[in-house]
Design a protein around this nucleic acid. Sequence first.
RNA 1: CGGGGUGUAGCGUAGCCUGGUAUCGCGCCACAUUUGGGAUGUGGAGGUCGUAGGUUCGAAUCCUGCCACCCCGACCA
Length: 491
Amino acid sequence: MDVKKIKRSEDYSGWYNNLVKNADLAEHSDVKGCMIIKPYGYAIWEKMQAELDRRFKETGHQNAYFPLFIPKSFFSKEASHVDGFAKECAVVTHYRLKNDPETGQIVVDPDAKLEEELIVRPTSETIIWSTYRNWIQSYRDLPILINQWANVVRWEMRTRLFLRTTEFLWQEGHTAHATAEEAIAETKQMLEIYADFAEKIMAVPVIKGVKSANERFAGALDTFCIEGLMQDGKALQMGTSHFLGQNFAKAFDVKYVTRENKSEYVWATSWGVSTRLMGALIMSHSDDEGLVLPPNLAPIQVVIIPIFRKEGERELVMEKADAYFAALKKLGISVKVDDRDNMTPGFKYAEYELKGVPVRIAIGPRDVQNGTIEVARRDTKEKMVLQAADLEHKIPHLLEQIQQNIYQKALDYRTEHIHAVNTWDEFIDALDNKTGFVSSHWDGSSETEEKIKELSKATIRCIPLNNPQEDGKCVLTGNPSKERVLFARAY
RNA sequence: CGGGGUGUAGCGUAGCCUGGUAUCGCGCCACAUUUGGGAUGUGGAGGUCGUAGGUUCGAAUCCUGCCACCCCGACCA
């Protein structure tokens, strides 16, 4: 495998792109800005989906599916929503092609123009709230707790595999509630689920917070988010949960009758995470050897590599390999025996390191004789010789350790990269030289936030939840401030 | 969309300035020897040189348009 090697420390985005391709996660398609998620990458996404889906269902949500197309007029019903998305919508104007008799080419049939254009969904609030109108009459119909797994399209100017693609996969939850309190509780509950998933499953520490007005979702009263910190010191928004107030209920005239027989608008939330999480996963743990996957998401958790020279050895070794395979599989571990005989063990080691398989077990004739196995962990590259008899209790434990270790490593990195600053010089110095989050006072105005963005390219990632209150002065204007917020340069 | 760069076999590339039908490595196929950290030998297959035009006896090479990707901006829940 003669792949181009790009060092993480020298060219982070080159390294990232290279890794996505070399580890067989995804590739560019023939369509501008759109990617093909390859089987190995999709397997990781499926594991993410399964974990999230289980958590959604445990908290009472059901899956449903709404159309890909949204009538154009729906978008204009909620003013800030259309402002937020208008510039990046794909529009369907015709429904038929025909053969041009003059050129012999396939052309759009001008006679097949749609009365009303259809928008390819960039998000589904409008079509869903238009539907909820018919579903909700009484307080007895509430809450409605629905999630959909879908693809959406946002016509971004510049794309990057997984992080920002024109079409991407995601889930979007859309809930309807009788009271604001209940909707807010839902918004926060989903934020907690995202944070828990990111930390426990992805092993990516996140900061929970609320967005400033500038960064808020188009149509929301409050946007909560989880923010991760990537290895190059840039922040990545990994998930959002919005309290939509009654904006969409009013726009789509969704009312319910209370127990007291009064008519009220419904309260709404929406929340989502996307295939961008794949980007977060890659950029949180991986190194120059390739991907590093947390055991909880690795499609292959343990790979067994048999080593043999002669035919007689092959049988002996394979017999053990198969036995270990069966033993681990019985424990619910995802395990694979790589018995390809046209490549050397060294080649396979490198390949599974590239693919981020957490644990590698090698068995050769020597091991068979000694009753041992050679175990290598991907995260530390540490190798050890274990008694084969210990396999069944040591390997599950090792997988847990690896999961813990890569989380801790990412957490340590983040802790080292949150810099509290009090002056503008310190602010710029932290961004340029230390990288990561900058915790500083801000006077709370959108104008100041804009100005800071202009001067430093940093945006407010969030105002952390349970943020300690302290008096201070805005790092730019010197105006009084009650709390610090987190700034960073972000993806 | 602006500035810069790139596009040659599955991958990575040489050739381009100075036009004459494409180089090398990896991978692939066959056989043999191999296999405890990216094996070796021998033989073989694989190319509309991103794309569409133009100049020319002749274009990967020169000219023009277009497309895609990368980097920096602008843009971006």
